[in-house]
Design a binder for these strands. Structure first.
Lengths: 188, 188
DNA sequence: CCTATGATGTCACTCTGTGTCAACACTATG
DNA sequence: CATAGTGTTGACACAGAGTGACATCATAGG
């Protein structure tokens, strides 16, 4: 069903990340993003609820992917193993060739308070979804919420390291190592 | 140094919480808040960085109070005891006669995504400050960050319960009980 | 009484975000 | 090939958030 120039949404995203990198998030107007994308500001707001959201495109899909991986883990798998499956599956979103864009995106978010707020609520939403998925596996409270929070903590740490390392370990490897560290820390 | 009608800031806060309760956060304009406070919208933005901030007045003082309590805990006190001191000291902000206003404020925040975002970043900032205070007590990483996150978790749970109970336990009592629960959960 | 100072008001302005309707491209159907 | 239908986009008007610049006013202190 593609009409006109296709991929309006991805053109918006590309134009936005370019401009944010060039002149900063606050200095970039939605009109400027739209102009670079060959569209209008009104159309921008048909694709994104607000200006911040253009930087958080994959979050719903990432969440759904991790929830699915958690649900499809073997019934006899422990809570930690199910969490590990979800964290590993998230690696589908973090190919090594996307690392430069991820790094740029991270630096833009780090530089702006509004964007940090938005990222926090995305993480909180993801945590709540994972906790719900754990409860549906029969994990009780507060274990489910605690495990979900721990999963988010590992995710943040691993993602930050993956973004920070220029040509280092893959996301999958970092997640494995971070999980192992958490296990030794938590082990009584 | 009081001139004009005093307490402009607290009048803004009172007018805002009233209007938010009456017609909702989004339907309330800054101009309406200012009118009820007997001032102008321009002056509102001299007291508050943005419209959301009017609901988060005490956060810096709360944070400073908790950090101070943490720093002043006996040097021989354990990490958990220092955290407990900070959480207990926070009770100075939660007198039982402020409970109705706290409840109204909480319901306003819960009903609006932008306000939930702002609350999340306030909690994250508080967590970072507590972790820093713990490191200054000689607690290493990742213990300091983990303990700070646990403290925030207890704070949120305790505050939510205190707000929810009409004429129930005091904040101090709830914090004590929540901490005891966390201890039994974490105990190996 | 007079003046320095700080708090407030006024005005003009940019930008975000929304509602509404017209114009348009494409698809399907006859 | 014509035409109706569907969904996308543009154009316009608009309300509200937030800011900068400057005027105005109340008061403290001499």
């Amino acid at each position: 069903m593609g009409r006109w120039e296709p991929d309006a949404e991805s053109r918006f995203r590309a134009a936005a990340i370019e401009l944010f990198g060039e002149i900063g998030y606050e200095q970039t107007t939605v009109a400027a993003i739209a102009e670079r994308a060959g569209l209008t500001a009104r159309t921008f707001f048909r694709y994104f609820a607000d200006k911040r959201e253009v930087l958080f495109h994959g979050s719903e899909r990432l969440q759904q992917t991790m929830v699915d991986a958690l649900a499809q883990a073997p019934a006899e798998a422990s809570t930690v193993d199910a969490i590990a499956a979800a964290l590993t599956k998230a690696g589908d979103f973090f190919d090594d060739d996307r690392r430069p864009i991820a790094r740029l995106r991270s630096s833009v978010i780090a530089a702006n308070a509004d964007l940090r707020e938005r990222e926090l609520i995305k993480m909180a939403t993801l945590s709540a979804a994972l906790a719900q998925a754990l409860r549906e596996r029969g994990v009780g409270e507060p274990d489910a919420s605690l495990a979900a929070e721990a999963a988010i903590a590992v995710f943040r740490v691993a993602f930050a390291q993956w973004v920070g390392e220029s040509e280092g370990r893959s996301y999958g490897r970092i997640v494995k190592e971070s999980l192992a560290r958490l296990r030794t820390i938590v082990a009584c």
